[in-house]
Design a protein around this nucleic acid. Structure first.
Lengths: 250, 250
DNA sequence: TCGAATTTGTGCGTATGTATC
DNA sequence: GGATACATACGCACAAATTCG
């Protein structure tokens, strides 16, 4: 059973990984099926399955039900430019990125009122339970989902105004700064925090990634005169994006 | 078997995740054993195992052989402030952080000449094989290693000058901007890119983390009049740090 | 100190569902 | 529709680590 003090499924996974690294199994190639692995390596169905699972967890291969297990092309991480807000031009992180990469993107957005949780309240400088407008975004690039975002705005600020819904009304999709300007609020301060954590099953599923893989989370807060007017989390797959900043030197 | 179009092991994982999120299973608490899960949820051994694996992959729980599966304490990541260079005051990322957190830190640094590899050359705008000064840092906070950093400077710029070695000479430890100023080079441009990837065994070992866990990598490049004068990688454990930026709104 | 019970982790064989070709 | 292949699920066995009487 054991072979060099290594579980059987790891031994099989190592061998397949070597073949991928050596180019013997190039991108988009199909791996031997579970049944073939069972024969070739003289192992059980479970071991063949576990070995494939290891490679899938590593993001090297991708299983397609009914078809086969395929080598994933290793993609070069793209840049998510966060060079600060530019008054003229696209404003959301995604629209910025479009401008940078000349990639045509689409997105869906759903807004809903809710009561602020403790963390949201903390970030917006309001009390837990205060009402906020939560908007969930799903951004696509070339049809593929690439970025999730959730924004929160205090209804104490936007409630019963034309800009209450970020993606509707006269300034739909124009960005936080423009919309707040319509309320005579001058956004003069942005903080962003970049973190990485294992992606939740839901997030990874939506982004077409591998369960357990890391996501980058950019937590952004817009402020007007010290008062938070919007806060948002942007979630992308860590293996697909780097977050780029251009900083001033004072 | 299926329940709301969801596999049984995901249903069990979701339920356990909710209990963790709700505080019903606080940090360090022990999850129901595989056998208990099997009984409570009326599922098989395999399903109970798979459910636990999902939560382990998400980093929520940790299995200890022979003992049990335990909820991992979600430690609040510390801030790594990257608010841009401030002419007066500490300059290295770590020294900035000290100022922010009032944490007394120490560091070791080792400098060595080498030939630039392809990636370093690309970042410094020089040719592969050109000579550079590489300096490796290990930063400690309260005696514990918390951050690794490697910087590269073209010897075409600093060679045979008093500031050739970052941590020696008259401007030792004063930071890139000050040292370049001594060469009449005005650093006016900083770009940073934040990425996350699985930590290398060496890195994770040095930082006291768990193998396989993600690290955050901040890749920074200082430029003077468009010419790169220094580039560096800063590596921290992803679960322990967030990278914070304060951006201008133009 | 010893040993029994518990628990995780690995491994096997099999059956069934379901997507793809 | 049939064949193929992945995905989920069940039940079982055993090794290693831990816990506890």
């Amino acid at each position: 059973m054991a072979f060099g003090d290594q579980p059987a499924y790891l031994r099989v996974a190592d061998d397949l990984r070597k073949k991928i690294a050596a180019g013997e199994l190039p991108p988009h190639a199909r791996l031997p099926s579970q049944a073939r692995i069972r024969e070739e390596y003289g192992v059980s169905d479970t071991v063949a399955l576990e070995a494939r699972k290891v490679l899938m967890a590593e993001g090297l291969v991708e299983g397609r039900s009914g078809s086969g297990t395929y080598v994933r092309p290793q993609l070069v991480p793209r840049l998510l430019s966060r060079a600060g807000y530019h008054g003229s031009g696209p404003s959301s992180p995604f629209r910025q990125e479009q401008a940078d990469d000349r990639v045509i993107g689409t997105w869906d957005a759903v807004s809903e009122q809710e009561e602020a949780g403790p963390e949201t309240a903390e970030r917006l400088g309001i009390e837990p339970g205060d009402r906020v407008m939560r908007t969930r975004y799903l951004f696509r690039s070339g049809g593929e989902p690439v970025m999730l975002s959730t924004s929160w705005e205090p209804l104490a600020i936007t409630g019963r105004t034309p800009v209450m819904l970020p993606e509707e009304g006269p300034l739909a999709g124009r960005g936080v700064v423009s919309r707040m300007a319509a309320l005579d609020l001058v956004v003069d301060n942005v903080t962003e925090e970049v973190a990485a954590r294992p992606g939740l099953a839901e997030e990874v599923l939506a982004l077409g990634g591998v369960p357990g893989h890391a996501v980058l989370v950019v937590s952004r807060t817009y402020r007007a005169g010290g008062r938070p007017v919007e806060t948002a989390d942007v979630v992308v797959l860590a293996e697909r994006y780097r977050v780029a900043y251009h900083l001033p030197v004072k």
